[in-house]
């Protein structure tokens, strides 16, 4: 079991290996399908992004509404493969860690190794469990996307498993 503090230090990321259980502590950006499409299009048009993605970790997730007394609603991972077309470009622009569920494309795996990042899998369907790991949630951009908006979370004791590490094959 490895604890990974976010924002991370290079050395910490490079010591994680595929198959390792990882506990995340700290800051995660949150974005899924529409956020990825918007960030990708903004980069292609050479526009400024609404958030600095350099050296950041992104969690593929869209929460349910927060019941009274909760910071956030259920917030488990969504299927990562839908983000595959966008991830290599985001990594080229500084993104380093991705957290979702399920397999990635060859292009994403190559980008993780090229930019020395990580792809982690959170436990699918465990939305209530992950809600208990979030200590704060803040809207960053794209409020019009509703449950798909770009958020920033602080997480504690957030369990994941490494599926792709930065070592060459």
């Amino acid at each position: 079991m490895i604890t990974l503090k976010l924002p991370f230090e290079e050395k910490a990321i490079q010591s994680v290996r595929a198959g390792d259980e990882v506990i995340l502590e700290g800051k995660l950006l949150v974005g899924r399908d529409q956020v990825h499409k918007k960030l990708y299009e903004a980069i292609m048009r050479a526009e400024q992004l609404p958030v600095d993605i350099s050296r950041q970790a992104v969690y593929y997730m869209g929460p349910s509404p927060a019941p009274e007394g909760c910071v956030i609603g259920s917030c488990g991972p969504t299927t990562s493969a839908r983000m595959d077309p966008y991830s290599p470009l985001l990594m080229e622009h500084g993104l380093r860690v991705m957290i979702g569920k399920g397999p990635r494309s060859r292009e994403v795996a190559e980008a993780v190794k090229k930019y020395r990042g990580l792809y982690l899998q959170a436990y699918g369907g465990c939305g209530a469990l992950y809600a208990s790991c979030v200590t704060s949630s803040r809207l960053i951009a794209y409020p019009e996307l509703g449950p798909e908006a770009l958020l920033e979370l602080q997480v504690h004791d957030f369990p994941a498993v490494c599926l792709i590490d930065c070592l060459p094959d």
Binding site: C70, G73, S74, G76, Y123, C126, G127
Partner: peptide, 20 residues
């Protein structure tokens, strides 16, 4: 983790999964 999640959802107002 799935069993833990089932127990948390049952004892809160949180859906089992955010995708309802």
């Amino acid at each position: 983790y799935i069993l833990k999640n089932i127990s948390i959802a049952e004892n809160s107002m949180l859906p089992l999964c955010q995708d309802c």
